[in-house]
């Protein structure tokens, strides 16, 4: 889990369900941006919002952003090398880099980067428990889904512990690990089945206990956490729409490259 209690900013106080809707909306909007000139200011603005707004030390955020650069390079590379295009730049065997495929590859890489940044913005500022409480109250998510999910999140550490116990048990009993594909298959059998079977049994028992305590009851519930709305939610909506609108204006008014649509047209 990326969320840490000790850091906080105004983004932490945004209604979690609203934040989820806004950020998912942002991702869907990105799917319809085909202009690489718009993506560049958008990614810059998102990175800025993350660095300033997440409330975390900048070094920590930069550390989390590190894998995204890797994703950026590897997502775009196959499009750059093997994408369709007309203006040829470079060719070596099956790899053909054209002007069109290059910008398209960069665009896809920036897209992956923006998805990563939006995801990090959400994960660093949202407490999972509050998200489920908010989904129950603001979006009428049936409590059995919300509580079921929260309970299963709590079961993960137990499964990890069981995994360690199994490891030790196999060691004590002298189960030799085989190398290669056979070893991979053996590990799968030795670990996946007991771990899954145990967690299913445990989940079943916990569910019975939760049903007995009426955790599945939907009507007339009371809630321990009551996430509501405040003026900061309004600010968030304005910021979010502003980022996308601003990136659009900057990208269209002051384009860096002459390509405005990275899709391939015959």
């Amino acid at each position: 889990m990326l969320y840490k209690k000790k850091y906080s900013s105004w983004l932490h106080r945004i209604n979690p369900a609203l934040k989820l809707v806004l950020l998912m909306g942002g991702i869907i909007a990105v799917l319809f941006i085909h202009n690489v000139n718009v993506m560049i200011p958008l990614v810059a603005a998102l990175a800025g919002m993350l660095l300033i707004g997440s409330g975390q030390p900048i070094g920590r955020v930069l550390l989390f952003m590190l894998p995204f650069l890797f994703v950026f390079v590897s997502t775009g590379s196959s499009m750059i090398l093997f994408g369709k295009g007309e203006t040829l730049w470079w060719q070596w065997g099956p790899a053909v880099i054209s002007r069109e495929s290059f910008y398209r590859g960069v665009h896809i890489g920036l897209r992956a980067l923006s998805f990563g940044l939006i995801g990090l913005l959400f994960a660093l500022t949202t407490r999972p428990v509050l998200l489920f409480y908010s989904l129950m109250q603001q979006f009428r998510l049936p409590p059995r889904y919300a509580y079921g999910f929260m309970a299963s999140l709590r079961l993960l550490p137990l499964i990890l512990e069981e995994f360690k116990t199994l490891q030790k048990a196999y060691k004590v009993r002298g189960v030799d690990s085989v190398k290669g594909w056979k070893g991979w298959w053996q590990k799968l059998r030795l670990y996946a089945i007991p771990l899954l079977a145990q967690s299913i049994r445990r989940a079943q028992r916990i569910a019975v206990a939760m049903e007995a305590r009426r955790f599945n009851k939907s009507i007339q519930r009371t809630y321990y956490y009551r996430p509501g709305f405040s003026s900061e939610d309004g600010l968030m909506v304005i910021c979010w729409v502003g980022i996308f609108a601003g990136a659009w204006i900057v990208g269209v008014q002051w384009p860096l490259f002459e390509i405005t649509d990275v899709r391939f047209n015959e």
Binding site: R144, Y145, A203, Q204, A207, F215, N216
Partner: peptide
């Protein structure tokens, strides 16, 4: 789907 189905599904 009962709570037990949901819980087992999400745990798996």
């Amino acid at each position: 789907l009962k709570l037990s189905d949901i819980l087992v599904t999400t745990v798996v």
